[in-house]
Simulated assay, not measured.
Amino acid sequence: MKKFSILAIALTMSIGTLFTSCESLKNTNNTQRGAGIGAASGAVIGAILGNNVGKGGKGAMGAVIGGVVGGVAGGVIGNKMDKQARQIDEVLPGAEVKRVGEGIQLVLNENSVRFDTNKSSLTTEAKVNLNKLVPVFLEYPDTDITIFGYTDITGPADYNLKLSAERAASVRDYLVSKGLASSRFNVTGLGIADPIATNDTADGRSQNRRVEFAITANDKMKEDAKMEAGN
């Protein structure tokens, strides 16, 4: 569980003022955290996630996870995402799992899904690790999954952008072949954006050839959460 973290973000807005504090939410429950996050717009949360989760391409990740329900219903969704994040971390400890707002950021790096240079095809090891995720994703069918593909800095930027999209699509296609509904997925290629390691070494470039998931509640989960919350 070393890499599993919950990013508690409290947002309070007044006229022309935005105050954020992670420390203040250490002792709050998921319902309270969801209510606090729901006080701000998705655009604001997206900007905050860009600062707290990473740089560059993380703005795209923040924009996806930043669409929240908030209030008690947001807390209901948060509880479900907590459980799913823990299960992902248990079955695939080599991945990085982060709870962000009402969603999950999942980074599949060199320890889970590695790509060879200039390749978008999945290695045998990558397929083995993706297989571990399938039962968890099937257990939580009311989530949408956006897959972001990345490359190292080798080669032209336009080529890398295309390659990164193909990597994301390879992961989606493999998961769909294992029984997940294709309608749950969106794929985006971000090329060389947001490296998580140096591109100056072979090992660093290997880490940057990765995919990341943004796992969010679909419309059914949101409506069910509102009903459970009595909204």
Rank of each mutant, 00 (worst) to 15 (best):
V76M: 10
E102Q: 15
N30S: 10
T151L: 15
M13G: 01
V69Q: 13
A35K: 03
L18R: 01
E90C: 01
S177M: 12
T154E: 13
K83D: 03
K127Q: 15
G101R: 01
T198E: 00
N199K: 02
N160V: 14
P141C: 01
L106V: 12
N160R: 15
D144L: 09
A197I: 04
A73C: 09
E139W: 05
R210N: 02
L7M: 09
K178F: 11
S206T: 13
G78I: 00
G179D: 03
R184Y: 09
S183G: 12
A165G: 15
V134R: 06
V53T: 06
D203Y: 10
R210K: 15
G189E: 05
G56D: 14
A181G: 06
V176S: 07
D142F: 06
T216R: 02
P135W: 04
V97R: 03
S112A: 12
V134T: 11
Q32G: 01
A8D: 09
F115I: 06
N118L: 08
T151N: 09
T188I: 14
N109A: 12
T151E: 02
I88P: 00
V91N: 00
T201L: 00
I192A: 15
E166R: 08
T201Y: 08
G56N: 14
S183C: 01
A63D: 13
A225G: 10
V187D: 02
V64P: 05
Q105V: 06
I88Q: 08
S206Y: 03
F185D: 07
F185Q: 06
S121R: 08
D142T: 07
D116S: 14
N218S: 01
I9K: 13
F4Q: 03
L108I: 09
T151I: 13
P195R: 11
T146I: 03
N29M: 09
I192K: 06
Y174S: 03
N29D: 15
N29G: 15
T28W: 09
E96M: 10
K127M: 13
K3D: 11
V176E: 00
A168G: 06
T17D: 06
E139L: 13
I88S: 07
F213P: 14
V69Y: 00
E96S: 12
Q87W: 09
A73F: 08
K26W: 12
M227A: 10
Q32R: 08
A40L: 03
K119Q: 10
V69P: 10
L92G: 10
V176A: 06
G59K: 10
I153R: 02
K80I: 11
M81V: 12
L163K: 02
S183K: 15
Y150R: 05
K127H: 03
I153D: 12
V69E: 15
K98F: 04
A169W: 00
M81W: 03
R86P: 00
T154Q: 11
G191C: 04
N199E: 04
G70V: 05
F148D: 11
